[in-house]
């Protein structure tokens, strides 16, 4: 099997540069964080002694718990809003748009990515702000007498911003799942006596579920750790877990505690993602 071996060697050679790169920029920092989380804090320095003290502190900290729950809550809300809004778009793309136009539509959907994430978040601030587009617009046509406050510096505004930012990530997997549905299946649903709505409920939606689950996962995981949006749109008054970690790490300079928070947050997300994947697998099994 000399040929095989050289093929293996070739493969290894090919993946070595990206592998080294990922080890350097991904695995190494992760291990550093993990290591830090088990060290003692000596105020401004780190004492190289093993301890579980940080975890005890994190798990016992009501503020961390509240902020972690808030992060999960915001992420869940964002996921729900994003997926619910993305589904009709994906459906339209898959079922209404003519096949030769689909590529164009997909391209148009990616346009928001041409602008940096930071700028997009900032733009929402301009739109939703106290003197923003919405408030000044509504004021000038006399619908409201004073600026609306429920749309800035709170959870609502964060959900609006993040849902917009992650919309394409939700649209694409749902679109792919819908594309894979054999069209005669929908005709069969109608043929067997169900109207369009019931056919959607009994055929289209169950078959699109793998895409919905994937979309949820793709939106949920990054939004939990989002840092920019709470900072800018939330006005820093409603921190999420990433902001809290940042404060521990930099402002308070308690790296071991910050690291323990980061690891804990990662664990929580990992467990939830695993649950998602299991649900996904159940649907995927049926698909084949």
């Amino acid at each position: 099997m000399a040929g095989n071996r050289s093929e293996t060697a070739q493969g290894l050679t090919l993946i070595t540069p990206p592998l080294l790169y990922s080890v350097l920029v991904l695995a190494a920092p992760l291990f550093t964080i993990l290591a830090y989380s088990f060290l003692k804090d000596g105020y401004l320095t780190v004492i190289r002694e093993f301890t579980l003290e940080n975890y005890v502190q994190v798990w016992g900290d009501p503020i961390f718990r509240r902020i972690m729950l808030r992060s999960l809550g915001v992420a869940a809300m964002v996921t729900l809003v994003t997926v619910v809004l993305a589904f009709p778009v994906a459906y339209f793309l898959s079922f209404v748009v003519a096949p030769e136009r689909k590529a164009l539509w997909l391209f148009l959907i990616t346009i928001p990515f041409w602008t940096s994430y930071l700028i997009r978040v900032f733009l929402w601030k301009v739109i939703l702000g106290y003197n923003g587009v919405i408030n000044s617009g509504l004021l000038s046509i006399g619908i409201i007498d004073e600026p609306l406050t429920f749309i800035l510096y709170n959870v609502n505004s964060m959900v609006i911003t993040l849902a917009h930012a992650y919309a394409p990530f939700a649209i694409l997997p749902i679109f792919v799942a819908l594309e894979k549905i054999d069209r005669p299946l929908l005709e069969a649903g109608r043929d067997l006596g169900e109207n369009r709505l019931m056919t959607f409920w009994r055929v289209t939606l169950p078959l699109a579920m793998p895409g919905v689950v994937a979309a949820s996962l793709i939106v949920f995981i990054p939004t939990i750790g989002d840092y920019v949006t709470p900072e800018l749109i939330g006005g820093g008054k409603i921190p999420m877990v990433a902001n809290m970690i940042q404060v521990q790490m930099l402002a308070l300079d308690n790296r071991p505690l910050g690291a323990a928070m980061a690891v804990t947050a990662m664990l929580v997300v990992a467990v939830l993602s695993l649950a998602f994947v299991l649900v996904n697998r159940r649907f995927l099994k049926v698909q084949r």
Partner: peptide
């Protein structure tokens, strides 16, 4: 009369068996 209200049923070329 829409397809779902017609007294006909169809065997599709691809059979259209619901995979789920």
């Amino acid at each position: 009369v829409p397809a779902n209200r017609r007294p006909t049923n169809m065997v599709f070329q691809s059979y259209a068996i619901f995979p789920h």
